[in-house]
């Protein structure tokens, strides 16, 4: 049996920031329909990896391929074409606070909209029904015209998910989407994400602090430590020893 073409592929990627090395020589493939969790302690490069996957960062060395295109080559227009197929959800929601919710939701369509349409919609919201539908899916239909900064944290995260729904991408990336939420809300949001992904057949790459959530909602777990991949295994294969290993402090010296 031949494997389908990978959706994402990292080939010997190293990411260097001003002073520190965030990722070291990472090679990785992610296939359509997978639900992949990235776990590891803070500062091990999970966010960097996500930013590489959606093209926000370009690798210092190596290549990142997404949907069959190299993100480090080609014009910015071509890169945008690819990025339209990748939706991202962030820990701090990354919404434009001062806009009403509807515009933040519709912002998911900006890759497709013409400038004119986008400008008109700011004054007289367009595609209201679609936006309302997305909000309905995430459970806050009544907030359509509320100002975003008046929503609670959980509600804002739902708006961010609705934005991705409107974008309707092939893959959804999530960078610690529940770290700012309480445990109850976290489970709700995770369940929502899984439901959406399963229902619509999307690929999910999610970085998580909580191993339990990772095991519960994903089918593949990648452990990162010090910018390298410590393990890359199916969820059921995760052992207590591996987890200890993952959070073990580096030997001094």
């Amino acid at each position: 049996m031949t494997l389908p073409a990978p959706l994402f592929e990292l080939r010997q990627v190293t990411q260097q920031f001003d002073r520190s090395l965030a990722l070291r020589n990472i090679t990785l493939q992610i296939f359509p329909g997978e639900r992949v969790a990235l776990v590891g302690s803070s500062g091990t490069g999970k966010s960097t990896l996500i930013q590489l996957l959606n093209g926000t960062l370009l690798p210092s060395q190596g290549e990142v391929w997404a949907l069959g295109h190299s993100l480090s080559q080609g014009s910015s227009r071509q890169r945008r074409q690819v990025q339209r197929q990748i939706g991202t959800i962030y820990q701090q929601f990354h919404l434009v606070d001062t806009l009403p919710v509807i515009h933040n939701v519709n912002a998911g369509r900006l890759g497709q909209w013409s400038f004119f349409k986008a400008a008109v919609s700011l004054l007289y919201p367009l595609e209201v029904e679609a936006a309302a539908k997305a909000l309905h899916r995430v459970g806050i239909p009544e907030k359509l015209y509320a100002r975003t900064d008046q929503l609670s944290g959980g509600q804002q995260q739902r708006v961010a998910i609705a934005r991705v729904l409107r974008q309707d991408p092939v893959a959804i990336l999530a960078d610690e989407p529940v770290s700012s939420l309480d445990p109850e809300l976290s489970r709700e949001v995770m369940a929502l994400l899984r439901e959406l992904v399963q229902e619509m057949g999307k690929t999910l790459v999610i970085s998580l602090h909580s191993i339990e959530l990772a095991q519960q909602y994903c089918d593949r777990i990648i452990g990162l430590r010090d910018g390298t991949i410590l393990f890359d295994i199916p969820s059921f294969a995760l052992s207590a020893e591996r987890i200890r290993d993952l959070y073990r402090l580096r030997e001094p010296g």
Partner: peptide, 26 residues
């Protein structure tokens, strides 16, 4: 951050301006 988020989903610069920069600064 909201601007980077818009950019990451393939929004053209002009619309990042319209839906991100402008409402945030106005």
């Amino acid at each position: 951050r909201p601007l980077v988020a818009l950019k990451a989903q393939g929004t053209p610069a002009a619309l990042v301006f319209l839906y991100g920069v402008l409402p945030m600064t106005l």
